[in-house]
């Protein structure tokens, strides 16, 4: 069985991103980039499934410019078998990414697509769902547990008020939530070995997908600065401040 794991390159989650000078986008120049944390969870899950004997091959794919190879190599270091880089200079919106993934799916024919539920940059939470719709395949989103049985994937999801368990026939699309697993550390020697592994390159133009930016980014602004809070010593002081400084109580 083959598992396809689409992954996204995003800003490292410790980095505080700021708007650029003209407020037209966030400023990512000189910002440390990483594998989107939800995608990292998808990679981990795929590797665990393979290690448990339920899959033979884990293939990762990403769509983007040359630098995206760094994230593919991270996935290879973690244990993915193969990496596909769909090359494009322009960042794509979720629908277009899904369209590209349809092509990759048709080429690779995996039994399972495991992917992050959303990118921590745009927070779109769309790509997995749209991919499933376009392929006409079952989808199970926000997985907190994934179990494979013959021809079937059983997915547990955390929903308001409890857990929900879904069964879907393979092939299927599963998107991962935060508590699915705790991704392993990437061993340094494996990272170095991954640097020398080949990456399959696909040219976006050759995939014949019609791309179209349907959403226009109008402006990006920092949240208004909040004044620093103060600590009070006693309830009396709190009441006093609420009365006389904040004037929120009589």
């Amino acid at each position: 069985m083959k598992i396809l794991v689409p992954i996204k390159r995003v800003n490292d989650y410790n980095v505080k991103v700021r708007p650029n000078q003209s407020n037209t986008d966030v400023d990512l120049s000189n910002v440390k980039m990483a594998v989107n944390p939800f995608c990292e969870i998808a990679i981990e899950e795929a590797i665990r499934i393979k290690e448990s004997g339920n899959a033979d091959e884990v293939v990762v794919v990403t769509v983007g410019d040359e630098k995206h190879q760094e994230q593919l190599r991270t996935a290879l270091a973690l244990g993915a078998d193969r990496a596909i880089h769909v090359k494009t200079e322009n960042p794509l919106q979720p629908l277009d990414v899904a369209k590209v993934l349809v092509k990759v799916f048709e080429k690779e024919l995996p039994e399972l697509v495991l992917m992050g539920k959303q990118g921590i940059d745009g927070d779109h939470n769309q790509t997995g769902q749209m991919l499933a719709a376009m392929l006409g395949l079952p989808q199970a989103t926000f997985a907190s547990k994934v179990e494979l049985q013959s021809g079937i994937v059983e997915v547990t999801r955390e929903i308001d008020g409890g857990l929900e368990t879904l069964k879907a026939e393979l092939p299927a699309i599963v998107t991962t939530d935060l508590r699915l697993n705790e991704p392993r550390y990437a061993s340094l020697p494996n990272i170095m070995k991954a640097k020398r592994k080949p990456i399959d390159e696909l040219d976006l133009g050759a995939l014949a997908v019609s791309l179209e930016n349907r959403v226009e980014l109008v402006a990006v602004e920092s949240p208004a600065e909040r004044q620093e809070g103060v600590k009070v010593e006693s309830v009396d002081e709190l009441v006093d401040k609420l009365k006389n400084e904040a004037k929120v109580i009589e």
Binding site: D12, P183, A186, S187, L188
Partner: peptide
């Protein structure tokens, strides 16, 4: 430097942002 260390026979991992936190 990381290359040099990787070449040693250590149990060594590179930490990502979450693992560092």
């Amino acid at each position: 430097a990381l290359e040099r260390i990787a070449a040693k026979d250590f149990d060594v991992s590179l930490l990502n942002a979450r693992q560092l936190n």
